[in-house]
């Protein structure tokens, strides 16, 4: 089992990795860790995907049988495997943040390379699913279910691809701040998938 490294993103006001110091005078324990802009991005992405998933479930009310039949064509096992792939990748990115804080440049690059490799596995499994659907003649116009599922999972996959590029860049830079920002984006991608997967594939 993978245990969660605590506080991948540093708390700016705590003065130490993980911000795990006990409460005390002068400490602001409600200061957002990391970059404010990254949190704006995280909130924006959660709002966009949340709205998309709510719309998906709302439209499903008009044709639950059709949605259930359409869902049966998706690769549920592959998507479940992709959840494990992304969670593992997020853990590696968190370890890379720790390595960056410890000044271990070679270590952080190896960890980020592994995280990126898991991202590639995710995209490969996703591409396999798309190819199989297309081979069955299933496109975005086939049913409302596929319009939403292609849109939501495709937009998420685009974020995975962007995250892989971002992790490559921050690995090249190698500074703790850059690695922290890249890892935060990667965790956001993970977070969105955690919400998207059960709604689109399981319910």
């Amino acid at each position: 089992m993978i245990s969660s490294p605590h506080s991948s993103v540093r708390k700016i006001s705590s003065g130490g990795p993980g911000g795990e110091a006990p409460p005390g005078p002068g400490r602001d324990h409600n200061h957002l860790p990391g970059d404010l802009l990254m949190w704006v991005l995280i909130l924006s992405e959660l709002a966009v995907f949340g709205a998309g998933l709510l719309a998906f479930l709302s439209v499903r009310l008009t044709d639950p049988t059709g949605f259930a039949e359409a869902q049966s064509h998706l690769h549920r096992t592959g998507a479940a495997a992709n959840t494990l792939v992304l969670v593992t990748s997020g853990w590696l990115a968190a370890l890379a943040t720790r390595a960056a804080e410890a000044g271990q440049t070679r270590g952080l690059r190896l960890l980020l390379a592994a995280a990126i490799a898991f991202g590639a596995v995710f995209l490969t499994l996703k591409a396999t699913e798309y190819a199989d659907l297309w081979a069955q003649g299933i496109g975005t116009e086939t049913h409302a279910f596929y319009t939403f599922s292609y849109l939501l999972t495709g937009f998420h996959a685009a974020h995975v691809a962007a995250g892989m590029i971002l992790l490559t860049l921050v690995g090249w830079l190698g500074t703790p701040k850059a690695v922290e920002a890249g890892a935060a984006f990667w965790h956001m991608v993970d977070l969105v998938w955690i919400l998207l997967f059960p709604v689109v594939y399981l319910l």
Binding site: H6, S8, V9, G18, H29, N30, A94, L191
Partner: peptide, 19 residues
């Protein structure tokens, strides 16, 4: 899913330090 999202926010994104 909610528990997993909470853990990502708390442990990976560092919100455990900002209750």
């Amino acid at each position: 899913a909610g528990i997993k999202a909470h853990l990502i926010l708390k442990d990976y994104l560092g919100l455990g330090t900002a209750p």
